[in-house]
Amino acid sequence: MEYETINKETLEMKQLISGIQEISRCLREIAQTHRPLFGGEIYLTGRDVCERLFVSPRTLQDYRDKEIIPYTKIAGKILYRLSDINQLLQENHRR
């Protein structure tokens, strides 16, 4: 029985390493963009909302204080429903 030596220079190993790197990249991307659903709703963090609305964290806090934007606070963490953000944008859209 003949055995073939596989090392990091063989084509098979290069393909395997490349595949693992691609899977790793995809998983990192998914981890950064995935938002779990709670009761069919997608919840966003303050950072996500600031990026979507192009506002600062302080402005977002003002919106909360003035009850312009609804939010949920769980164990000190503030979350925003994506549907509420979309509704806010639609209600304030001007042509």
Rank of each mutant, 00 (worst) to 15 (best):
M1S: 15
M1F: 10
E4Q: 11
I6T: 08
N7V: 04
K8T: 10
T10C: 00
T10M: 00
T10A: 01
L11H: 12
L11R: 15
E12F: 13
E12N: 07
M13R: 02
K14D: 00
Q15D: 01
Q15K: 00
L16F: 07
I17Q: 02
G19A: 09
I20C: 03
I20N: 08
I20L: 15
Q21P: 00
S24H: 08
C26Y: 07
L27W: 12
L27K: 15
L27T: 15
R28A: 05
R28F: 02
P36M: 02
F38Y: 01
G39F: 14
I42Q: 12
T45F: 09
T45Y: 05
G46C: 06
R47K: 09
V49N: 01
V49I: 01
C50I: 01
L53I: 05
V55Y: 15
S56V: 05
P57A: 10
R58I: 06
R58S: 10
R58D: 06
L60M: 08
D62K: 13
D62L: 12
Y63G: 11
R64N: 03
R64Y: 02
E67Q: 13
I68Q: 08
I69F: 14
T72M: 13
K73N: 15
I74M: 04
I74Y: 06
I74W: 05
A75F: 05
G76P: 03
K77M: 13
K77A: 11
K77V: 12
Y80G: 07
Y80V: 14
Y80M: 09
R81I: 03
L82D: 08
N86Y: 05
Q87E: 15
Q87V: 06
L88F: 15
L88S: 08
L89V: 11
E91I: 10
N92A: 04
H93R: 13
H93D: 09
R94C: 09
R95H: 11
